[in-house]
Nucleic acid binder design. Structure first.
Lengths: 148, 148
DNA sequence: ACAAGTATGCACCTTTTGGTAAGTACCCAA
DNA sequence: TTGGGTACTTACCAAAAGGTGCATACTTGT
């Protein structure tokens, strides 16, 4: 309760050594990460990219089954956007039972590689992540009360 | 036709060499990437993490100004979630003009590092990305019917 | 003939997300 | 006294994202 606030000089953070600089802003992007995020925005895009980066060209149906829980509408939509953005290439064999497959362009492939560390992170910390999510769900489910 | 209709054997993809394996599924995650994505889902989270990873502990206001275009509500909300998920640490100095700063936990810091390649990718390909986005906007703008 | 599979398109609707604007409690400078 | 700054909170609302389900056009298997 005593008012001895005279700039306590916060300790200069022993944790969190700086990571790397980020060339800031070309068009309307805050930084490179910002640019990337806009491209991979969408619930399924990173998964699609990563999946394609692993398995090479894949038929629509295979992708559909691989990316669990995705609906046709969503998968098609995201693939279209990825295609428009020059990350995936669509090949339509014009066959009679439709046959189409998707593969990564070089650009897409490089993005796929940039996703690898994220995947590794998730794999390494999956235990923590899933614990955290369990709590989050409990919290969401129970808490409909005014802020406790 | 009746005998070997099983596999037309499409050409085995000269492009896209496989990238890496992804330890699949522990709790309800498709793969590590899936797990990661759930943690960093949210328009501003990756930016926040990355920003904190670069500059160390940061006061709320600084963050606010650094992450362009974010509103108070959003920034606070995402910070809260990141905190709940054990990625950032909030320090409230309990001072009279409020003073609070945010820093990364070790977990958060490791994630921040995993974001580096994405940032680099964006930086490297920013030209392509911005071109693509220009087209996307034109496309969006023109195709708009009076939905108002 | 009929169901199933293939790769999509489309309409409709709900959920989630995010933005705006206002308010709180307190201080300092003009 | 007014205005600005700090770090939030809350209510309300618009927009985006995403899901369901039906339709297509054609083939193959039963």
């Amino acid at each position: 309760m005593s008012s001895d606030r005279s700039n306590p000089l916060p300790p200069p953070a022993p944790t969190s050594p700086p990571v790397q600089s980020c060339t800031p802003t070309l068009p309307g992007f805050t930084c490179g990460l910002d640019a990337t995020l806009r491209v991979i925005a969408g619930k399924w895009k990173p998964l699609i990219l990563y999946f394609l980066a692993q398995g090479g060209p894949t038929r629509y149906g295979e992708l559909r089954r691989a990316v669990r829980d995705v609906s046709d509408k969503m998968l098609i939509q995201q693939l279209k956007e990825l295609e428009a953005d020059g990350l995936v290439k669509r090949t339509d064999y014009k066959e009679v039972p439709p046959r189409v497959d998707y593969s990564l362009t070089p650009l897409g492939h490089s993005l796929g590689e940039a996703l690898v560390p994220l995947c590794s992170w998730g794999t390494e910390h999956m235990a923590e992540v899933s614990r955290v999510f369990a709590e989050r769900e409990a919290w969401t489910r129970r808490g409909r009360q005014p802020t406790v």
